[in-house]
Design a protein around this nucleic acid. Structure first.
Lengths: 348, 348
DNA sequence: CTGTTAGCGCGTTCAA
DNA sequence: TTGAACGCGCTAACAG
């Protein structure tokens, strides 16, 4: 019983009880070649309307879902962008990530995530894995820390954007602000208001150049005033948290302290709570301020004076810059400063 | 000048100035076949130590990074898990995501992200795209909303976990808590404390079964008390935000209100601020409470009585369950209740 | 322990 | 506008 239509040279292999249709099944059902079916889905213009509608109809009926792994392999465009953040739980990063992701989703890209826990070795690892997935671009929160990661990124032929921190030697694109300047600005602000005995709380055990830059800027400005005493205190809690013991240490070792600056986000809000619970007058005896704004900063009483960062704008701008690069559009600037703003509230 | 070693049958194509070495180059440089090189990297046990060390050394020297797109295509294991959340910016989801991601990263899996903005149509779209990427598993925040998504998930041959909300007909795995019970528990709590005129604020324009379940539970319990008046107010702000107008509406249309419940996270904290700014006594005149705990809940004054959800535990448990499935281990239970807790503070 | 053969599902490159 | 051939880079299945 030879089929009168001629036996196909490439008979469909047996896929009984297998999952989803592939493009080939769609093409066969629509009576076109695989490539025509492919074009109907990705280059609709290059196909006559008649075949296009027929193929699309068949594809819908069969519940066809394209295999992006296969198309990624052959076209070397995966439509995936890798994102590296220290942690998602920190609101500053989740806001950044949300804005970035929303931006790239508009063009059909998806975010492949990797976290570093503020660890430079894990950062290099994250970059390596994301590159292994052949991401079309890469976005990183903060200046790239590890030399390995820098090396990997510079030989990789993908656009890279470092978000949040502006610095001198970006791998490629760079959008954010100068944490050094932010630190300096906050120092000036406190000095102008007469504060002279300043405790500055940083966090230990993490690779975070933003924190270091903030302190450097603060130190430089504060150090220029001869009558200012600046003491750095290190807390081992993760950024965003603060141990009561850190505050106790300050009060005992620096009794005439008149200002506390917290480098970690949210840490300043904790500091306000701890100090007010001890009956210490803010800002009468001690002014408190920090970096990074959040709803909690204005809810807390006294409300927090802080250096606000435009994280959502940074994420969106980073997404747009990458999309422009991926679309082959020229970029007017590869480094964009979105600045910061000191929000004066009642804690200083 | 014929090479004396014999011309290879598969000469390496010209890749001058091309990016990274492929497995083939590594194999050639190490003098083994491609498959042996492959095994050195993924099945080290099936290769003699001598060749293994040689190949690994060569791979490191050449800076070889495996192409996971190719290996995903051929092995149908991508080592990627798709995650669907309404939004990342909401802390409740970012904590969930962080814990989930940390869990799966321990086994080398990566998170491919998609957001829905609380839109059922976007949810189906998100699921479709993630399936197109051939994710090895899928995790979704909340009960799957759209029928399309349910259909896609049930024919897909991948493990699925619905996180956060427990319900009757999970697609596959399910870990979280009953938002219905949480609503009921909060109602009982408020009734026990004598509240009888309750305004309940929900958010409009979003597809969120959790919010609906909470209200249903609350309503059922409160409705059982004949002397209780429960009024639902709808705010068009996104969950987590709250317009002042919502509070004004309550005060004018429900003047003897003695309790306000906010369904959205953080919304209750906003409510406290708005009410205290208007000089209204909390909890003297009005008790305020909500769902979802956060640092802000204890920082605000009066501090917020709220139903706390163990989001980090849920994310971690969901990750572990998926990993077990992917590892072929049997799961004792496919539905896990992690419960909730009413944290009593000073706002009630 | 190592190699050979085959092909994952699709898009590129040509030609018709 | 449509199609045939080819191969992306890697691993599964078998053989040696």
């Amino acid at each position: 019983m030879t089929p009168s239509q001629g036996s196909p040279r490439n008979p469909t292999p047996d896929r009984s009880s297998d999952e989803r249709p592939r493009l080939r099944e769609v093409a066969e059902a629509a009576g076109v070649s695989v490539i025509t079916a492919s074009r109907c889905l990705s280059n609709p213009d290059r196909v006559s309307e008649k075949t296009r509608t027929r193929v699309l109809k068949v594809a819908a009926e069969l519940g066809y879902i394209p295999n992006r792994v296969a198309s990624g392999l052959v076209s070397s465009r995966t439509m995936v962008i890798g994102v590296v953040v220290p942690t998602i739980a920190n609101p500053i990063h989740s806001v950044l990530l949300e804005a970035f992701n929303a931006q790239i989703e508009t063009q059909g890209y998806r975010t492949l995530l990797a976290t570093t826990s503020y660890d430079a070795a894990k950062e290099a690892d994250a970059v390596r894995t994301l590159l292994a997935y052949k991401v079309d671009a890469l976005a990183l929160a903060g200046k790239v820390q590890s030399a390995d990661a820098v090396r990997l990124l510079s030989v990789a032929r993908v656009p890279v954007v470092e978000m949040f921190e502006l610095h001198d030697a970006p791998v490629d694109l760079n959008v954010g602000l100068s944490n050094f300047d932010a630190g300096a600005a906050l120092a000036r602000y406190l000095l102008t208001r007469g504060r002279r005995a300043i405790a500055y709380i940083t966090h230990s055990g993490i690779d975070d150049s933003r924190m270091a830059a903030r302190f450097a800027g603060f130190q430089e400005t504060a150090g220029a005033q001869p009558d200012v005493r600046l003491m750095e205190f290190t807390d081992s809690a993760p950024p965003g948290r603060l141990r009561e013991s850190a505050i106790s240490a300050i009060l005992s070792r620096f009794p005439d302290v008149d200002a506390i600056v917290c480098s970690g986000h949210q840490a300043a809000v904790s500091a306000i709570r701890i100090l007010t619970d001890q009956g210490i007058d803010i800002p009468g005896r001690i002014a408190v301020s920090g970096f990074g704004d959040s709803p909690a900063s204005c809810w807390v009483r006294p409300s927090l004076t802080t250096v606000a960062y435009p994280m959502a704008e940074i994420g969106a701008a980073a997404g747009k810059m990458l999309l422009a690069r991926l679309g082959g559009e020229p970029l007017p600037k590869t480094q964009v400063d979105l600045g910061f703003e000191i929000i004066e509230r009642t804690s200083t």
